[in-house]
Write a protein that binds this DNA or RNA. Structure first.
Lengths: 249, 249
DNA sequence: TATAGTCGTCTATATCAATAGACAAATTAG
DNA sequence: CTAATTTGTCTATTGATATAGACGACTATA
């Protein structure tokens, strides 16, 4: 973006419709803090002129964001911003879900969606230092803050060592607390690989997103302080609601 | 994605055309290492069936990737993968451009695109601990590996302290070397904030991307070992060619 | 109470995106 | 050589996207 000033460019015949590109820009702009809560968006004609499109095209973008609960349109008055700035999700050696979001939200928790036992895939086995096909427990979770989903994760644990961690997770709602039951009071993030892509159907459902949204994806391995791998995870974050803050370790 | 198996889902009337979504999926799949170099893609009819679309729609996706130099189609034989796995770009306290890419590419360098002196914007001033409007030098650079752009960055330095850094950068092609001329032999990454969005027109031109692509965006502050801010930067990485590896600090 | 500003709705038209089916052209396997 | 497989091209049709213009409905304010 380089500053902010030259970002108002739109691509035609790109496979991404103009209304979606404009909706993206408006979301970015809100997330970047360009509008106070309840502030008025520029009028439709002004936006149409700025982006070089028809007013109806801007209306399509706005309508999608109204649908999504980001904006509120009032006939005769204007269109107003509802949602807040993006959450800043900390990532570091000692990343814990709740701790890092303190102060940004009033309410936050993790929901266990499902658990299963399965043979380790190639990458899970590699991450955990197990033989391929070894039994692992898979926990599917969703992180929520202020009643909105902010993350969706799958975590894998060695089945033999962590038998019953699914129950612990359901009861405590915390990975840290669950691991504590297995005698692990501290763990570190060994590696994190980060990428981004368009949300697929599963992401849309899990994270309550509108089609065309972008998700940040992290693949990480957690280890004990002495380097023993305990958890392999893949997490997805809605890019429009979350940014990742890489904290000092 | 959770494993890999359920990722073949496509969203209709989402504002993102089906051919682009499919092109995205193919790119992801290649980047994830599902295909060896020069391996054949599944035939068009098979892909059409897998994604539940018409063969012509798949052809549109493939045609975009052929245009982009990712695939090569041969009549009667098949469609073949040209490009490599994604580059893994390391990010950590001591991130240096060239060092981390060693072994992944045969050739890599930074090009200085432009430099200018300007008053510091709000966020640049905050990042560098200066008064808003203080003079800063802005360097626009592009990182290339194997003749392909892999990053595009804007860096800001306090003008008074680093007068002439633009020339140093042009001569050395290295931030590290340029800073050394100002007596700074070591610096650390103090903070990094990470987000993702659709590429805008500037990104497309700078990074040689096809419209609809996704970029990873980092905003970072570099400091001297004793905590003095020296550089504020915003970098963009094409998500289809680069993943970010958060290294131990 | 006018008037200007803004969102809401309607009609019409053009282009892009996607589907459907058919057949040609090139390659590979038998 | 023949058949099967695969990419390339063509025509036709439908629906989504985008533009254009006009006008109605609601709000705030001079």
């Amino acid at each position: 973006m380089i500053g902010r000033q030259m970002a108002d460019s739109i691509e035609r015949r790109s496979g991404v419709s103009l209304w979606r590109q404009i909706a993206d820009k408006i979301l970015q702009s809100i997330a970047a803090g360009d509008f106070a809560e309840n502030a008025a968006l520029p009028p439709e004609v002004a936006l149409a002129e700025r982006y070089g499109v028809n007013r109806h095209t801007v209306r399509s973008a706005i309508s999608a964001l109204v649908q999504d609960g980001v904006l509120r349109a009032e006939q005769g008055r204007g269109t107003f911003v509802l949602s807040r700035k993006r959450l800043s999700y900390p990532i570091g050696a000692r990343t814990r879900f709740s701790a890092g979001l303190q102060g940004q939200t009033s309410e936050r928790h993790i929901v266990l969606l499902s658990s299963s036992v399965e043979p380790a895939s190639q990458r899970v086995a590699e991450g955990l230092g197990l033989a391929r096909g070894a039994e692992v427990i898979r926990l599917e979770t969703r992180g929520e803050a202020d009643s909105r989903p902010v993350s969706r994760a799958a975590g894998w644990f060695e089945a033999r060592r962590f038998a019953g961690i699914d129950r612990a997770m359901a009861e405590t709602g915390s990975v840290t607390a669950s691991l504590a039951r297995f005698g692990i009071d501290d763990y570190l993030r060994q590696s994190t690989v980060l990428s981004a892509r368009h949300a697929d159907a599963a992401d849309l459902a899990d994270l309550d997103l509108q089609p065309g949204a972008i998700v940040l994806v992290t693949v990480a391995v957690n280890v004990t302080p002495d380097g023993q791998p305990i958890q392999f995870s893949e997490s997805r974050f809605p890019a429009e609601r979350v940014e990742l803050k890489l904290s000092a370790l």
